[in-house]
């Protein structure tokens, strides 16, 4: 230290008494008391806790779990693809495509998902047969019974997927718009084609904006599949109800379903933060300090040197 010794105080350091945060103790105590009361109340309920682990691993519930995951993944993946297409239409120079994309988003985002699922499921009421052919002629390539096509899975998939694709279109559009215009110009200046610009330059940067809300949407999608139970698709809740309809253990089976929702949502959250990190490397050199190491370094830098008394 270059501080001249003449400026150093000769005063002895006195013991310091830290402030006691009494309020924190009181609030913590209140929370714990409430939790204890709730736990006691729950233990008094007419519920057989011991049966729940059995339901968690019962084949019917596990089948429901698999169906939930299949529906959510299929709907989300399709919605991402469709959403990218709608977003590209929205930002295109073609006025008709622009208008269509805006109307699409307006319609499928505006209606409740449950209503959309019900509309698809009951499509046979107005269109008993689905035909693909040339209008005003007798040429028909495909002719199917609507009820055969519109299974509970298909109806739930369409309802969830179309609604989500409208949200994805907005998310993707925001992501594409977040990339600086100069990035596209730089890519143009080295002769990249529109496809290369999109794939090599714009999308990798837009991903940082697109992934977090997409992850949130997927978590919502996992839970949103519960609406498919209304039309009889055997996902987790329907599976729980199916068991309960035999033995009336409604709460026990629902809690088993709740357990699995918490598991898949937690797994999805971890996956999301992993993805976010892998697309967020632009400001970190390869082999540079890890996030934890940098935090440690920052803490070391701001921690003031220990005060020493000079006896």
């Amino acid at each position: 230290m270059s501080t001249p010794s003449a400026r150093e105080s000769v005063r002895e350091l006195l013991p310091q008494v830290r402030l006691r945060h009494w309020g924190r103790w009181v609030i913590a105590a209140v929370i714990l008391v409430i939790l204890g009361a709730l736990a006691y109340g729950a233990s008094q309920g007419d519920i057989s806790w011991r049966d729940i682990p059995y339901y968690v691993i019962s084949p019917i519930i596990l089948q429901g779990l698999v169906n939930t995951i299949i529906l959510a993944v299929a709907a989300q993946v399709s919605a991402v693809i469709l959403g990218v297409i709608i977003a590209l239409m929205r930002i295109s120079e073609n006025p008709v495509a622009k208008w269509f994309a805006a109307a699409y988003t307006w319609l499928f985002r505006g209606l409740p998902v449950l209503l959309q699922i019900l509309l698809w499921y009951n499509l046979a009421l107005i269109f008993p047969r689905l035909q693909l052919g040339i209008p005003f002629t007798d040429v028909v390539f495909v002719d199917l019974s609507t009820n055969a096509v519109m299974t509970t899975f298909v109806a739930a998939f369409l309802g969830l997927m179309l609604n989500e694709s409208a949200y994805m279109a907005e998310i993707v559009r925001a992501g594409l718009n977040s990339v600086d215009r100069g990035q596209i110009e730089a890519a143009q200046s080295i002769g990249e084609t529109p496809l290369q610009r999109m794939w090599r330059i714009v999308l990798p940067q837009a991903m940082r904006v697109i992934i977090p809300p997409t992850g949130n949407d997927f978590i919502n999608m996992l839970k949103g599949t519960a609406m498919a139970s209304v039309i009889g698709y055997v996902e987790l809740i329907r599976a729980a109800n199916n068991i309960a309809s035999f033995n009336l253990q409604v709460m026990e089976t629902l809690i088993a379903a709740a357990f699995w929702y918490m598991v898949i949502v937690s797994v999805a959250s971890v996956g999301q933060s992993y993805l976010e990190r892998s697309f967020d490397r632009s400001d970190r050199a390869r082999g540079g300090p890890t996030r934890r190491a940098r935090r440690r370094l920052a803490r070391d830098l701001v921690t003031p040197p220990l005060v020493r008394s000079h006896p």
């Binding site: 143009q188 200046s189 080295i190 002769g191 990249e192 084609t193 529109p194 290369q196």
Partner: peptide, 8 residues
């Protein structure tokens, strides 16, 4: 784009 590649 191909043409632009010859300019910087």
């Amino acid at each position: 784009s191909k043409q632009r590649a010859s300019t910087g």
